[in-house]
């Protein structure tokens, strides 16, 4: 196990290195840089002033030098200065992370508490009206575009019901924050819950046909015990995998949700930073997301061992 962990750790480092090169190169391949955009916004072209800005920001340096400056800074905890706000990038990124993290955790929580039990019910009640209804719900969750769903929810809860305000003020209490975030989280989590529900259902159906389930029933185990102790425990592994993947993909869904609900998190900030070619913000944020994804994947792999005693990572 120890050797596996070490191998895994180095693999994670390798993945992060690959990500850093990829994002660095992709950003430079995109048309225009910050100086182009600054002049674009002012509607003028001045090559001399543009060159001055590029020199000031080190964009005139060879790419290798720019990359090593960024990585060495990152390793020292110096994320550089944001090009647009001219403030330390860390000061721009840090306050936004908790907002997105709370939204992501809430969305994931929503998708699990909705997706897993409904998936089990759908499997156990296969081909009943309840199963059909749940399948329609899960299909609509997968097919409704999240921006459209978010707009509908926004209209319903803000305009017609007036239950939540649009995120225009920092929430005063944790309950206020929960109220503000729970509806956007539900909008994001709905799609993920649909996927989890479908996977749980199919996985459960497969397990419920196994011999050991028949044995459990034959020895007189209750339906709840059969479904939850015997079947779900064995059916949950692919669900855990998909939850891990969804956690990583969640950030994509949050970009739309944060924009529509006006939540000042990192996802929306990242899109704006890409639009402005604000390299220090984009590079560091993408690296942060990469770290989160890599760690979540690692935790999912570790969860396999806990959930299925048959799985062992050999040294």
């Amino acid at each position: 196990m120890g050797a596996y962990l070490v191998r895994r750790f180095f693999l994670m480092l390798l993945t992060l290195f690959g990500m850093s090169v990829l994002i660095f190169v992709l950003l430079r391949v995109m048309p225009g840089n910050i100086s182009d955009i600054l002049f674009e916004s002012a509607g003028l072209v001045n090559p001399a002033e543009k060159a001055k800005i590029e020199k000031e920001l080190g964009l005139d340096q060879p790419l290798v030098v720019q990359y090593s400056t960024w990585i060495s800074g990152l390793l020292r905890g110096d994320l550089g200065y944001a090009y647009v706000s001219e403030k330390p990038a860390l000061d721009e990124i840090l306050p936004r992370i908790p907002i997105t993290a709370k939204l992501a955790v809430l969305a994931l929580f929503f998708s699990i508490v909705l997706g897993v039990p409904l998936g089990v019910i759908s499997a156990v009640k296969q081909d009943t009206p309840l199963d059909y209804a749940l399948r329609v719900v899960s299909l609509s969750g997968l097919s409704l575009p999240s921006f459209w769903l978010a707009l509908l929810i926004l209209m319903g809860f803000v305009h017609f019901l007036g239950w939540i305000p649009i995120y225009t003020d920092k929430p005063a209490t944790i309950w206020h924050e929960l109220a503000l975030l729970s509806i956007p989280a539900a909008a994001v989590g709905f799609r993920a819950s649909a996927l989890i529900m479908r996977l749980t259902r199919s996985s459960m159906l497969e397990v419920l046909r196994q011999d050991y389930i028949r044995t459990a029933r034959a020895k007189g185990a209750s339906a709840a015990s059969v479904n939850y102790d015997h079947a779900l425990r064995n059916a949950v592994l692919p669900v855990i995998t998909i939850i891990g993947i969804e956690a990583a993909f969640l950030i994509g869904g949050l970009i739309v949700t944060e924009t529509v609900f006006n939540i000042p998190g990192v996802a929306r900030f990242l899109v704006e930073a890409i639009r402005w070619r604000d390299y220090p913000i984009v590079q560091n944020l993408v690296m942060f997301i990469a770290v989160v994804v890599v760690v979540v994947n690692f935790l999912v792999d570790m969860a396999y061992v806990v959930l299925d005693p048959r799985i062992k990572y050999e040294d």
Binding site: L154, V158, H159, G162, I166, T168, T259, V260, N262, R268
Partner: peptide, 17 residues
């Protein structure tokens, strides 16, 4: 408040925000 999405900001105005 900076609200990039036109639908959201219009709705917020209508809602009295």
């Amino acid at each position: 408040r900076i609200i990039a999405n036109r639908s959201t900001r219009t709705l917020a105005f209508v809602a009295g925000e």
